[in-house]
Design a protein around this nucleic acid. Structure first.
Lengths: 257, 257
DNA sequence: ACAAAAGTGTTAATAGTACACCCATGA
DNA sequence: TCATGGGTGTACTATTAACACTTTTGT
């Protein structure tokens, strides 16, 4: 494309003409462990909010990467999760830009953060990141307070996004390692929603949705302690579920007023 | 909240330690005019992309406003639309941060843009903004190319968001001025989807969804040229449609592979 | 044989689709 | 009274929710 006069204009352009913004990414990394939805938090060892629990994240590398790339990089750095690992789902959530969200506004720096949601299969104990900061899985129902910056808000938005998204998409499979049983998949829904779908109807819905799952070749090792061993499946190609899986009426995940 | 040592730390903080980012908002302002979905574009009279058609937008006022506030401000400045006007719907879409998306990266400035979607009732001819730049409504089907920056991509994302969102939410009413008939509402769906729902079933679905619309008190002026005058409605309180309105199978809006 | 977990059947209710038909109005 | 668009009825089909029931395994 030709843009007349732009090359000359660019040579005279002064990037200092704009006051400084900093751009960060923050990741709500979610998994299902022990039957509950949990988020990975790290304890900050730098100001601001030194000593507080926070979402993993960091600054964009200026001129070198997009927010997507930065999110992938942070995911690896902070958790050791390979960004191409099986089942991993990473998507942009929203951008948080309130001037008061970061105290560094007091020093003249406005920090804008691009929030991401990552879904990963249940992992063992958290791997401390390269920053050697403390890291731990926290059940999301146990906290909506006391996080650094506006991270509590970001986390709530992330959880709400996931609760809605498993209704009309197949992302729930991202929480499982292949191969998996339909009961395990149903347990994911129980953890995310706080209430489990009917086993029979759930099975029919999943199997009737082309591309939700596909049968695994070999019958799995009989790791179950007793009872009939389950048929095993792998993730399919489909992304959307139409019509959506209906969330059961009332559950402990949505306490009344 | 107490954050020990942070006040002293902040006094010594150097905001110049980070390379400069600029943060902008870009608005996909959509309306339904002449039976088609149209977007408001402005012709840029400044570098970069001088003379190109672009989405309305601009820089965040540093230290003074969030992206939401900036989007509302730009909406007023560029279009004269009051951000509290009836029916107006404004929501964040996504954030675009590829280093190459803005040529000013060549001068050392990385520009990150937060995209917004605005839905507004059909408006008369576009009001030139305070920048006196040329402005016009363009049918969205007529262009996915030749826009400044990555605005074609943002616009495509915005249209896709709206096409999906009218299925499970009541935002379609944002395209209409009150009071409106159900036929007018159905015409919105035709414009957005490219295919119209069945009139009878559409009527039943809308009226069966509590809070989608509510009856208007007075019967409207008989502006129709002939035929039975329609019953008129206003927007209701509901936001979500469960289960969703199904988009008819095949239509010109979704060409096959 | 029994317990436990997986998987299947059945039925009533609900919701959606397609299309025919009736109603109210202006010219 | 006729053309025009608004609004209703209806038969048929597909989907869902709820729950009872059968199958397969380990001990």
């Amino acid at each position: 494309m030709t843009r007349p006069g732009e090359a000359a204009w660019l040579r005279r352009y002064d990037p200092q003409a704009f006051p400084p913004f900093a751009v960060t990414v923050d990741l709500a990394i979610l998994t299902v462990r022990d039957g509950s939805l949990q988020a990975l938090l790290v304890r900050r060892d730098e100001h601001p909010f030194r000593g507080w629990w926070a979402l993993p994240g960091g600054h964009l590398h200026h001129g070198a990467e997009s927010a997507d790339a930065a999110a992938r990089r942070e995911l690896v750095e902070e958790t050791g999760i390979d960004s191409t690992a099986e089942g991993l789902h990473l998507e942009q959530l929203a951008t948080y830009s309130d001037p008061q969200r970061d105290p560094r506004i007091g020093a003249g720096l406005q920090v804008v953060s691009i929030g991401y949601v990552a879904l990963a299969p249940g992992l063992p104990e958290p791997v401390a990141g390269t920053d050697a900061a403390e890291a731990a899985w926290w059940p999301v129902d146990a906290l909506t307070e006391s996080l650094a910056f506006d991270h509590a808000r970001i986390l709530v938005d992330a959880v709400e996004r996931v609760r809605a998204k498993v209704e009309y998409s197949t992302v729930a499979t991202s929480f499982l390692t292949e191969p998996f049983s339909l009961t395990e998949l149903r347990e994911v829904y129980r953890a995310v929603w706080g209430v489990a779908p009917d086993p029979a109807n759930f099975r029919r819905k999943v199997l009737a949705t082309a591309g939700f799952v596909r049968p695994a070749e070999l019958v799995g090792s009989p790791t179950t302690v007793g009872g009939r061993p389950p048929e095993l499946y792998r993730r399919g190609d489909a992304v959307l579920i139409t019509p959506p899986l209906a969330r059961p009426a009332t559950g402990p995940a949505a306490p009344g007023p």
